[in-house]
Amino acid sequence: MGEKRKSQPKEASAKKARSQKQTSKDSTGKETATELGHTAIPYPKPVSGSSFTECTAKLTVTLAPAYSRDHWAGIHEALNNMLLHYVPQVRGVILAYSKVKPRSDTALMFFDSPYGQLEVSARLLLWRPIAGMALRGQINVQSPDHIGMLLWDTFNASIPASFIPKDKYEWRPFNDDEIAARALPTYNQSEAIADGELEEESGSNTDADVTMTTQGESDADVPASPYTSGNRYGSGEWVVKGTSQCVGSEGSLEFVVVDVIRANEVLSVTGALR
């Protein structure tokens, strides 16, 4: 008979402990243990300051042949087309410009192209988010996969589920009663006419002067966002773990920028909850 191999309980338990726990370093450089299968959120180094900045930059604008006699009209049209677009020359989204000065009296034309190239300098207001900044957005969608937000009613931001700490937050699905209670009543014009809820201003019969009210609810009372005034749509929401307290306050949520994504001329932000 073969010799029975002796068990080594100490070595086995040590290997099991090492496989169940891994160490990682947070932003402060300290090592923290994380459970197997739950990688640490890569929080970047904190960055102070605003995501908006001003600078004087040199830009190259393209002038169409129609502006060969009026460079200023062509310059302003080219700069207007850059507004709310990501411009690699300035590494940011141009929000406004001022103090425009041409750097040359003539535009350059290359080969057989009818378009001219002219360099100008301008004072620019830019949106330039950086990883590590703390931003606040208005929640517009929640799902088990992510939290979607809108920044300043203009820019998109998303927090993937992998960047939501599971030791602090959890996904809570709505039941049927909650979904029904959260839905706002909707009316179309024919139903409003049948209910006698259309009011016409005296002396006017035009459609522009017809106003519609919904059971004592004025336009000012209707939330601008489905996530304001406690009205939420969808299959559920992210809440503080162990409670029913939803993330954010009054529909807004603060997060840390993890990555800035550029797709063509559109800039969006990926964030993480603390």
Rank of each mutant, 00 (worst) to 15 (best):
125 L>V: 01
131 A>E: 05
142 Q>I: 10
127 W>L: 13
162 S>Q: 09
77 E>Y: 06
131 A>I: 02
38 H>F: 14
92 G>S: 06
46 P>H: 07
28 T>D: 13
188 N>K: 02
41 I>G: 05
223 P>T: 15
47 V>H: 10
110 F>Q: 14
17 A>M: 13
256 V>Y: 05
185 P>S: 01
196 G>L: 12
221 D>N: 03
109 M>A: 09
181 A>M: 02
233 Y>P: 00
86 Y>H: 11
132 G>Y: 04
101 K>E: 11
245 Q>R: 03
84 L>I: 00
43 Y>D: 15
146 H>W: 02
138 Q>I: 06
228 T>H: 15
62 T>L: 09
199 E>G: 03
109 M>R: 15
243 T>A: 05
1 M>K: 12
105 D>Y: 02
80 N>I: 03
156 N>S: 10
171 W>V: 11
226 P>E: 14
104 S>E: 14
122 A>G: 05
96 A>E: 04
175 N>D: 15
207 D>I: 08
195 D>I: 00
150 L>E: 03
38 H>R: 07
112 D>F: 06
47 V>D: 10
234 G>C: 08
159 I>Q: 13
133 M>I: 02
80 N>D: 14
249 S>A: 10
238 W>Y: 09
143 S>F: 00
106 T>M: 06
132 G>W: 02
79 L>C: 04
28 T>Q: 11
115 Y>K: 06
80 N>Q: 09
212 M>G: 10
207 D>S: 12
208 A>S: 13
220 A>V: 01
164 I>N: 01
165 P>M: 09
53 T>R: 04
258 V>L: 12
192 A>S: 12
249 S>N: 09
182 R>G: 01
37 G>M: 08
208 A>E: 14
107 A>V: 11
111 F>H: 14
31 E>G: 02
122 A>F: 01
234 G>E: 10
103 R>Y: 00
178 E>G: 05
36 L>I: 11
6 K>A: 10
170 E>Y: 02
32 T>Y: 11
52 F>T: 06
212 M>N: 11
129 P>R: 01
243 T>R: 05
204 S>G: 03
56 T>K: 09
237 E>K: 03
7 S>Q: 15
192 A>Y: 08
257 V>M: 10
